[in-house]
Structures are given as structure tokens and as C-alpha cells.
């Protein structure tokens, strides 16, 4: 808003001359500064945690100290459980998100592209989106048992909703002129969808993927409370059942690191898949 207020456009126009607009250009922040600022808030939180525990302000019953949590991490690494748990959860989350997000993507494109598709799919998907997936757990257990199928289906159902909503929005938002131009060149059906519509909706799709992956972590906690013997969601259950506050905090730390990893991975994909968005328009 400030640029608008300061804009000299009005007096210049009144004087009858046109002023060359300032070139937005590429404004890159220095990498070192950017990284320092990025890390400062998490580091400050860590420091506060460490100081709080060391000074005795935080009782170990309220929040386990960094030493205890590192000890728990050491134990998990020593017994090899950390790797096994992460691998088991990664397989479940990966399969679940692949199936759920794949389905959400397909339905979102169909619903965004055609009126019939929207009429057929959209009301059901909107209803489905309103149903908390955790409410489906008892039903899914009776349909799929308590083994891997149940866990993957639960995560898939959780992931399908946001992917559908974002893709539908993205496809609806694709520039009509671009689609018309592509049609003019004879693009139809799948080629139009894969060549023009999906690339244009890519920012939405990647945003949806980010959300799907985060939701899959929630799904893991719910799914691995039931009939699991490994997984990071199972670790949360164990920590609660055995009243191990060090492991509870460790689980939170693991989830935080996973959140960071997901964010970095999607940023990487964004750079590769959408190089034209390297400098953000609004800044």
C-alpha cells in the first residue's frame, strides 16, 4: 500500500508526461543473513528450553529437559528402533499420500475441468471433507482390520480432502485465455490437462502436497495407536503409556524435524518444477 501512496503517477500524469515505472527486478537477500534470520527463532526457543530446564524453572514433570531427550534419542538409535520406526512410518505415509493425493488430484482435475464432473464429484467431496477422518477409525477397523491396509487407507482418506480442494481451486483458477490459446493449437483432453492445466495449477498442487504430508503425520498418530508394533505414531503411544515425558518431547522434536524436512523437500520441488517463480511477485 505504501508504494501506491508514494507513487508519483498522479502528478506525472497531470503534467502530461509518462514516467517509466521502477523495475521490480530480482531482489535476493544475502544467503547468510537469510539463513541466520531463519534459524534465529527456533534457536531462541531451544535456548529458552535449555535455560528453563537447567535453572529449574521448568520441572521435568512439565517438560523434560534437553539432556533427558537427547538420552532418549541415544537409546532409540542404539537399539536401532529409530531407523525402523521412521522407515515403517515413511512407507505408510508414502503409500497413503500417494493413493490419497493421487485420487484427490484426479478428482480435483475432473471436477475443475467439467461441469458434469463437478456435479458428480464436488458435493460428495465437500461432504467428505467435513467428516473428520478420525471419526472413521472404528468403521475402517471393521472394514479393513487393524493391519497395514487400515493404516494406509486412513492416511489416504485424510490426504485426499485437501488435495482435492486445492486442485479444484487451482484448475478453476487457470487463465482462460491460456486455455483458449492451447485449444487454438489443437490441444484436447489429456494433452490439454497435462500440458497446460496441471502446470498452471502446480502452485496449488504443491501447496496441497505440503498439507497432505503434514496431515499424514496426524494420520500416523491415529493409525499407529492401533495394532502397530513400530512407527513414530506408535512411539507417541508408547511414551504416553509408559509415562515417559522424555520420549514425549522427543516425539515432538521428531515431528518438528519432519515438518522441516517436508518443507525443504517441497521447496526443492518448487524450484525444480516452477523456475519462473524464483522471485515472488508480491515482494
Amino acid at each position: 500500500m505504501s508504494t501506491l501512496a508514494q507513487s508519483p503517477a498522479l502528478p506525472a500524469e497531470a503534467a502530461g508526461t509518462l514516467e517509466t515505472p521502477r523495475h521490480l527486478g530480482v531482489r535476493r537477500r544475502p544467503a547468510a543473513l537469510s539463513l541466520t534470520v531463519r534459524l534465529s527463532v527456533p534457536l531462541l526457543l531451544l535456548l529458552a528450553w535449555w535455560y528453563g530446564s537447567a535453572s529449574g524453572a521448568l520441572s521435568p514433570d512439565v517438560l523434560a529437559g534437553p539432556g533427558a531427550v537427547l538420552g532418549a534419542l541415544g537409546e532409540l538409535i542404539a537399539t536401532g528402533q529409530l531407523g525402523e520406526y521412521l522407515a515403517a512410518s515413511a512407507v505408510r505415509a508414502g503409500l497413503g499420500v500417494a493413493v490419497g493425493a493421487g485420487l484427490g488430484l484426479l478428482l480435483g482435475v475432473l471436477s475443475g475441468l467439467s461441469a458434469l464432473g463437478e456435479e458428480l464429484i464436488d458435493p460428495t467431496m465437500q461432504m467428505k471433507r467435513a467428516v473428520p477422518f478420525l471419526a472413521l477409525v472404528p468403521l475402517f477397523i471393521s472394514w479393513f482390520g487393524v493391519q497395514e491396509t487400515f493404516k494406509v487407507v486412513l492416511i489416504a482418506v485424510a490426504a485426499a480432502g485437501p488435495m482435492y480442494a486445492y486442485v479444484y481451486l487451482g484448475v478453476r483458477g487457470v487463465d482462460r485465455k491460456v486455455v483458449e490459446a492451447a485449444r487454438g493449437f489443437g490441444l484436447r483432453g489429456a494433452r490439454l490437462a497435462f500440458g497446460v492445466i496441471i502446470p498452471s495449477a502446480l502452485p496449488n498442487i504443491l501447496m496441497a502436497l505440503r498439507i497432505c504430508l503434514s496431515i499424514s503425520l496426524t494420520g500416523l498418530i491415529a493409525a499407529e495407536q492401533i495394532g502397530a508394533t513400530e512407527g513414530i505414531g506408535y512411539l507417541v503411544t508408547l511414551a504416553q503409556q509408559y509415562y515417559r515425558s522424555d520420549y514425549m518431547v522427543l516425539c515432538i522434536a521428531i515431528y518438528a524435524v519432519l515438518g522441516l524436512a517436508i518443507d525443504l523437500a517441497i521447496r526443492g520441488v518448487e524450484r525444480l518444477a516452477m523456475p519462473w517463480r524464483a522471485h515472488l511477485a508480491a515482494r
Binding site: 495407536q225 495394532g227 508394533t229
Partner: peptide, 8 residues
């Protein structure tokens, strides 16, 4: 058949 554990 040994299954998994249950939170509750």
C-alpha cells in the same frame, strides 16, 4: 498370530 499394540 502376534498382532500390534493398542493405545486404549
Amino acid at each position: 498370530e502376534w498382532g500390534g499394540s493398542y493405545a486404549s
